[in-house]
Simulated assay, not measured.
Amino acid sequence: MTTDDRGPNDDLKATLLGYLQRARDAVLWKLDDLSDYDVRRPLTPTGTNLLGLVKHLAGVESGYFGFVMDRPFPEALSWLDEDSEPNSDMWATADEPREVVVGLYRRVWAHADATVAAVPLDAQGLVPWWPEERRRPTLHTLLVHVTAETHRHAGHADIVRELVDGAVGLRRTATNLPPGDAAWWAAYRQRLEAVAASFR
């Protein structure tokens, strides 16, 4: 695409997709170098686990950039059926290998990106599960919504991964954390605990 071929909203679309892609990438790197057990381990009382977050986000994007915009994702996702088991989108079953879930998420990205490329930002979709007064959001609104949700779940993945093996940060190459060895972090945590304890 040359500069002359670009529409008035192409830069805005690129910006929005850029922020969404950074969140997608952050979620997936949290699975790197972990065993199949560790990517599935429920580490909160409500069962939050890394592979389940990926599965959930695949469903989110396939819905908002597929069904909602009248561009259905071509693969059936059984956990989105009305009669599916509650919370079945938040964990991978034994017959859903990591490679299958991650591959699905990547195919959903491609479908979502194609929708964004093909549809004007002011085009309206239909979200029947939203309140009546909000059921006709624009593609622009959906991009903001899905980006916010993906970043929220990337934060969940940050915490879960740290609980698994201590790996932290936005990316392997840029943690966005202050430099410090294990002793520094232990002392930092003790300091925070001491301050918290003063409020008991």
Score class of each variant (00 low, 15 high):
Met1Lys: 12
Arg6Ser: 02
Asn9Pro: 00
Asp11Pro: 00
Ala14Lys: 00
Gln21Tyr: 10
Ala23Arg: 06
Trp29Gln: 14
Asp32Cys: 08
Asp32Gly: 12
Leu34Ala: 14
Ser35Arg: 14
Val39Thr: 15
Arg41Ala: 15
Thr44Asp: 14
Thr46Pro: 02
Asn49Pro: 12
Lys55Ser: 05
Leu57Trp: 10
Ala58Ile: 00
Ala58Met: 02
Gly59Gln: 04
Glu61Asn: 09
Gly66Arg: 12
Gly66Pro: 02
Met69Tyr: 09
Pro74Arg: 03
Ala76Lys: 08
Ser84Gln: 08
Asn87Tyr: 11
Asp89Arg: 14
Thr93Ser: 14
Arg98Phe: 11
Glu99Asp: 12
Val100Tyr: 04
Val101Ile: 11
Val102Pro: 04
Arg106Ala: 10
Ala110Arg: 11
His111Gly: 00
Ala112Glu: 05
Ala112Pro: 00
Thr115Val: 05
Val116Thr: 01
Ala117Lys: 07
Ala118Arg: 04
Leu121Ser: 04
Asp122Leu: 06
Gln124Glu: 13
Glu132Pro: 03
Arg136Phe: 03
Arg136Lys: 14
Glu149Met: 02
Arg152Ala: 08
Gly155Cys: 09
Asp158Thr: 08
Asp158Pro: 11
Val164Glu: 03
Ala167Pro: 14
Ala174Thr: 13
Thr175Asp: 08
Thr175Tyr: 05
Pro178Val: 10
Gly180Asn: 07
Ala182His: 09
Trp184Glu: 00
Trp185Lys: 08
Ala187Leu: 08
Ala187Lys: 13
Tyr188His: 15
Gln190Ala: 11
Arg191Ala: 15
Leu192Arg: 09
Glu193Cys: 02
Ala196Gly: 09
Phe199Val: 11
